[in-house]
Design a binder for these strands. Structure first.
Lengths: 166, 166
DNA sequence: CAGTCATACTTCAACATTCAAAGCAAAATA
DNA sequence: TATTTTGCTTTGAATGTTGAAGTATGACTG
């Protein structure tokens, strides 16, 4: 099997970068509209998504150090958007929980992706939706190759390296 | 058209978030390996990609203020990775150019996406590549709806849209 | 059980990013 | 020419980020 469409990898990279850029820029606007910084909004989103995460979980999910999480949570606590709950099972741990005000902020600042994506997605034909899900999950898998998730099902056929090195 | 698969939008959002997260985390590692900060690496990448951009172009592309660009470029100039070239056409403008050392850093820190993506992409079957490109471009279009994106030359061919307008 | 090590979090000091506001110089416009 | 606009820099202030050190708790080992 030889290289048939060398442009395609570039095309998909361009599309991916557009996706990343659009999402990032929009996330900032959303955060500003919600009256918090982007980093603080991300904390709120993770706290809302996971079940009262510990500081450690937050740090892992955001990819920052625990010291950073402490600083961010300090700010959010000072604004009464989250609160710290000492864990009963392990007293070293602290669970971060949303306050009512924090939930309000989250509602006013819906996920950056959802806001833009959901409507258009819902209008697609059935087969188009299915194809999109399949493609996105495949890309996500490709990007996570040697990450800690132990790279699941990527081998859909024979692997053959092309001659190009990037 | 009624709702047939309400889960799919969630599945695609989850996949998109995984893509965003993997990319962001990896970009930081790359920057650190290259000995610059993530923001500085992004400046270098844009300078390498565009043709000696002005500070204004950089600010637009990165979505930050000109003051921020000035600060970032100051740091890169101090480390001799870029240089400022007064524009001949418009003496208000300043073109940012890569130095030889800047090019070296860029080479050592290939694009966050490329590093992980290209190899896996090349191994896909022809029809899978085509489907991926189509899907990614569609998602990018969905996310860019009302964006003031400057990004020109993206036309890679007929994007045959179905009956819907996006 | 005492001692040791590992884990979860915080504090501290230093630096990077970011922006609004003010300032300056050059271009565009009237 | 006078005025406005544009591109960039400077300044001052807030936030984000981290490594290193410190504290408290849990886990393990003999």
């Amino acid at each position: 099997m030889t290289q048939k469409h060398p442009d395609r990898v570039d095309e998909s990279l361009i599309a991916l970068r557009r996706i990343l850029r659009a999402t990032e820029l929009y996330a900032r606007d959303l955060a500003q509209a919600a009256g918090v910084t982007p980093a603080q909004l991300r904390v709120l989103q993770i706290v809302g998504e996971k079940k009262d995460p510990t500081a450690k979980t937050l740090a892992n999910q955001m990819g920052v150090s625990q010291a950073t999480v402490t600083a961010l949570v300090d700010k959010l606590v000072a604004r009464s958007l989250v609160s710290r709950q000492p864990s009963a099972q392990d007293r070293r741990q602290t669970n971060i929980t949303l306050t009512t005000q924090g939930e309000d902020v989250l509602e006013e600042a819906p996920d950056a992706l959802q806001q833009r994506y959901v409507r258009a997605f819902a209008d697609l034909a059935d087969w188009e939706q299915a194809q999109l899900v399949s493609s996105l999950e495949r890309v996500a898998a490709m990007l996570n190759v040697d990450s800690l998730d132990a790279a699941p099902v990527l081998a859909t056929g024979e692997l053959r390296m092309s001659k190009k090195t990037y």
